[in-house]
């Protein structure tokens, strides 16, 4: 148990010390938030609603990014550098190692959520009820699981450069097409019809619904659960094939 605790702590420290995390998952979303709520889109109808909506977009954008990129690229790095192989000699089991990573990521996601929510409250005075803040936070935390699974799928790649490139493209496509940068309603209809099926849209939409006083839609739950299942199965399948090849 001590080993698991120490491992989780180590994973948290490693992410916090990663400049990419600080830049992509904290600084970037907050800068975007300022640009799209203070510089552009000011003086529009439903200003407050937009500020709350876009705060959720950026928080979801941030958490999705660290789930896919931080986790995925790190997994590839650890394997490429022989660290994962070395860990196999220690008594720490693969399962404990994996779950320590998940715990570490979840703690980091909680931290990102708190930081970005606070930024929204400070910058625009976004005022939600305590229950709404909490529900949004929990939704984003739970909704990050399919993206963590996608991260482990990216983590099966062989080269760090490939993993970084591929995960960047996936991340940006998901963010843009899922309506995280610009609401889906402002996009051409063919993009909208694709967008509503993406995990990113369903991830964001749950939180967008909550800030409007609704509950996440059933489709959001179902699709995220489906993507989680799909990515877990795929990444297990790929990993098992790789292990069998040795």
């Amino acid at each position: 148990m001590n080993a698991f605790f120490m491992q989780s702590k180590a994973e948290i420290l490693r992410i916090l010390r990663n400049p990419y995390y600080v830049f992509w998952s904290l600084a970037m979303p907050i800068v975007f938030y300022v640009i799209f709520t203070r510089v552009f889109n000011t003086g529009i109808d439903g200003q407050q609603e937009w500020q709350a909506h876009y705060l959720m977009s950026m928080t979801a954008f941030s958490v999705m990014g660290s789930a896919i990129m931080t986790l995925g690229i790190r997994l590839v790095e650890e394997r490429a550098q022989g660290w994962s192989k070395f860990m196999k000699i220690t008594p720490l089991t693969d399962t404990a190692y994996f779950f320590a990573k998940m715990v570490g990521q979840t703690v980091i996601h909680t931290f990102s959520i708190i930081v970005i929510f606070t930024a929204g409250a400070v910058i625009n005075g976004v005022a939600l009820t305590p229950a709404e803040w909490l529900m949004c936070g929990l939704w984003i935390l739970a909704g990050s699981f399919p993206f963590l699974a996608l991260g482990t799928l990216i983590g099966t790649m062989k080269k760090v450069d490939t993993a970084a490139g591929v995960s960047n493209v996936i991340y940006m496509l998901l963010a843009v097409c899922g309506g995280m940068w610009m609401p889906l309603e402002t996009m051409p209809s063919f993009l909208q019809s694709i967008g509503i099926w993406l995990p990113s849209y369903n991830f964001g939409n749950g939180a967008w619904q909550i800030v409007q006083g609704n509950a996440p839609e059933l489709a959001n739950w179902l699709l995220l659960a489906g993507y989680l299942f799909l990515f877990v199965v795929l990444s297990n399948y790929v990993r098992r094939n790789q292990e069998a090849a040795v």
């Binding site: 180590a10 420290l13 490693r14 650890e78 550098q81 022989g82 660290w83 192989k85 070395f86």
Partner: peptide, 10 residues
Amino acid sequence: LQEVSVIDAL
């Protein structure tokens, strides 16, 4: 092991 690998950021 032959290739010495270290964990980063710790």
